[in-house]
Design a protein around this nucleic acid. Sequence first.
DNA 1: CCCTATTCTTGACTTATTCCAGAAAACGGG
DNA 2: CCCGTTTTCTGGAATAAGTCAAGAATAGGG
Lengths: 144, 144
Amino acid sequence: MQQGHEHHFDPKEQLRSVGLRVTAPRVAVLRTVAEHPHSDADRIAAHVRDELGSVSTQAVYDVLKACVGNGLLRKIEPAGSPARYEARIGDNHHHLVCRACGTVVDIDCVVGAAPCLTPSDDHGFVIDEAEVTFWGMCPGCRQS
Amino acid sequence: MQQGHEHHFDPKEQLRSVGLRVTAPRVAVLRTVAEHPHSDADRIAAHVRDELGSVSTQAVYDVLKACVGNGLLRKIEPAGSPARYEARIGDNHHHLVCRACGTVVDIDCVVGAAPCLTPSDDHGFVIDEAEVTFWGMCPGCRQS
DNA sequence: CCCTATTCTTGACTTATTCCAGAAAACGGG
DNA sequence: CCCGTTTTCTGGAATAAGTCAAGAATAGGG
C-alpha cells in the first residue's frame, strides 16, 4: 500500500481506548478498513488473511461487530450490496453509490447542519439519524 | 381492512397500462401492497395466500420484480430488514425507520426541492436519486 | 377458439451472515 | 514472570432472503 499514515492512526490505541482487547485480527481489520474504506466483509477478510495468514470468517464478523458496537467503525448497507465498513466516523457524511458496480464514495453534507434532519412530521418517533444515500452511475460504468 | 378506496385504485388497469398481463397473483399483490404499505415479501405472500388460497413464493417475488421494474411499486431496503414494498410512487418522499421493530413510516420531503439532492462534489457520477432514511425509535418501542 | 408467449409451480441453490461448542490467547493479580 | 479467568478465535453447521431452472399452466391476440 502506497498510502502514508498522515493521520498517525493507531489501531491498538483505538482498541484500548474503548476497552477492547488488542488482538492481531482486530488490528488487521481496523487497518484494512482505514486503508480500503467501504470494503465488505469478504474483501476485509481477504486483506486480513493476506496479512496474518489465516483468520476465520467468523473472527472477521465478530471483530467488525465489536468495532461497530464500540464506535470504531461504521457499517453501511446500501441496497443490493453486502454491508460495507468505514473508519471515518463521528462526522455526518453521506454516501454516493454506483448503481452498476456498487462503488461507494463519501459525500460531505453540503448544507451544513443538515436540514434533512428535520422531517415535517416525526410520527412520535425519536429520531437520531438522517442517512442520505445518493444513487447514480460512476464515470467508469457510464462508458459501458 | 377498514380503509376505503378513496383513490379509486384499480390494479387491473394499472397492470394493463404498463403492458403487463392481468393475473390473479398480480392483482392480489398490488392490492396487498396498497393496503399494507412497507410490507416485506413474506407478509405480502401471506396476504396473497389468504386471498387466493395458494401462491408460490417465487410468483410473489416475480410479481414484485415485474411491478417494481414497471414503476407500479417501489422497493425499499432499510439496513437490517428484508426488502419492503410500497405503492406510493412518483413523489419524492422518504422514510423513517424504527431501530427496534423495523416499522417504516412515510416522511414527506420537508425542504421542497430537496437541497440534499445536490452534493458538494459528485465525483464525476451522474446522480439520479437522493434517498433519505431517518432512524429512530417509534412510540411503542420507546416504552419497552 | 386456438396458439404462442408469458407466467406460475416446485425444488434446488447462492450469498451474506449468525450460532454453537470447544480451543486458544490476552491481560491483571500474585 | 507465571497463572487463572475472561474473552476471543476456530471450524462447522445453520439460517434468512432471495435467485435460478425446467416444465406445467394460462392469458389474450388473431
